[in-house]
Amino acid sequence: MPRNFFTLMRSSAPAATDVPAATRSGHGTPPPNWTAEAATGVHLDASLEAVRHEITEEVDTALQLRDVSAFYGDFQAIDRMSMPIPRNRVTALIGPSGCGKSTLLRCCNRMNDLIPGARMDGEIEFEGRNLLDPNIDAVEVRRRIGMVFQKPNPFPKSIYENVAFGARINGYSGDMDRLVEDALRRAALWDEVRDELDKSGLALSGGQQQRLCIARAIAVQPEIILMDEPASALDPVATLKIEDLMRELAEEYTIVVVTHNMQQAGRVSDYTAFLLAGEERVGRLVEFGPTQDIFTNPLDQRTEDYITGRYG
């Protein structure tokens, strides 16, 4: 099109009415002859009821999600997800990009509050209270539900101060040196950094930085640790260390991990939730259950397709 201001002006007029509604993005109801299959090539069940495998072991529930939805402005990112997060287990959230894994994770400690225009519906029960209740203080929630991020993000402070930071702001009155050592030991980093605690956290290697972030998270004694693709920026050796660490930490903490990598989910997690974004890019829970069951005996066709690598 020529860069002519008259023609351009015409094309900037409000969207013409002859454009088929189905090709527009937004929330308009699809016309009757439009099917999800035709648009995405995936068969979508209209029901929100996800497939749930039976949980055979006796396990407490750390978090109970009920109909959790999240919106960014007008855009709905996840739609009415319900599932339990078993205590002292590793729960993996898997699914293709843009299916709402990270959004769901960030709902669990109210990190979404920090994004302007973000909104959450539904209920996340934690110790008998609803985390999503506006009266519940997000600061308190985040202290008890820690988080580790995709890219290691140590503060530009010494290793010691990185670990002590959370304890300091939360008014820790005990022996700080012991707390730091303890956290670093549990994060399997102590032996590598014990002689250089004054060194900047940024001077460590990527894998060490990520373990430092884990140590930082556990130093405030959270009950639950959320991990958002914690190994995606790391090399295979460092990834292996992080995965071993997750298994060890699961003895004391409840861990929820978002991962892109199905092998990783299979290796580290006890439970797996498979999420998928359907039409309008809204993420929904498809299947939840013990990892063993999900991987060996998926009940939903889409889960099987994903696990066998048919798409993703």
Partner: peptide, 12 residues
């Protein structure tokens, strides 16, 4: 160990 924390969230 939790008892060693006094987060005083409301105050902060």
């Amino acid at each position: 160990q939790l008892t060693a924390f006094s987060p005083r969230v409301r105050f902060r």
